[in-house]
Simulated scan of single mutants.
Amino acid sequence: MRSKDISPILEGWDFQPDRISVRKIVGLDGKPKIQLRLDMGLLQMEVEGRPDGKRPYGYESLLEYYLSLLEEHRESKGSDEDFVLTHDDCMALMREAVQYYYRYLSLFHLQDFEGVLRDTERNLRVFDLVKRYAEDERDKWAFEQYRPYVLMMRARAKGALKLAQEDYDGALEEVEEAIEQIKSFFKEHGREELMEESQELKVLEEWKEELKSKRPKGAREWLEEQLRLAVEREEYEKAARLRDQLRALERQQRRPS
Rank of each mutant, 00 (worst) to 15 (best):
A178H: 07
D128T: 06
N123C: 12
R118E: 14
Y146I: 03
K202A: 04
H189Y: 11
Q111A: 12
M153D: 14
E196M: 04
G190R: 10
E200P: 00
R147I: 13
R132L: 12
L124K: 07
L93C: 02
F186V: 12
A142L: 10
L129M: 10
D80V: 04
L85W: 01
E196D: 02
L163N: 04
D136E: 06
L194C: 03
S106I: 08
Y168T: 00
R103I: 09
N123I: 06
V175R: 08
Y102F: 10
R154G: 11
G190K: 01
A157Q: 03
M195H: 01
A164P: 02
F108C: 06
V150T: 13
K77R: 13
E196S: 02
L117R: 13
L117K: 15
R154I: 08
L93T: 04
L93D: 06
G78L: 03
S76N: 13
L107P: 02
A142M: 09
Q111W: 04
K162F: 00
K183H: 10
R103P: 08
A171W: 01
V84A: 06
E196Q: 05
Q165N: 08
V98F: 08
E176Q: 12
E176A: 10
L204P: 02
R103E: 10
V150K: 09
R156H: 12
W207Y: 09
A97G: 11
R191A: 07
E174S: 11
A171S: 06
Q199P: 00
M91L: 13
R125K: 14
R138I: 00
L172H: 02
L85T: 05
E96C: 09
E137R: 03
K187D: 15
M94T: 11
H109S: 08
M195W: 00
R147F: 10
C90T: 09
D89Y: 01
E193I: 03
E196V: 00
L105N: 04
M94Y: 09
E188Q: 11
G159P: 00
S106L: 02
R125E: 11
K162I: 00
R95P: 05
A92G: 11
L129W: 07
R103N: 03
R95K: 13
L85V: 05
R138T: 00
Y100P: 07
D139F: 04
K183Y: 14
G78H: 05
T120P: 11
D82P: 02
Y104D: 10
D119Q: 13
E205S: 07
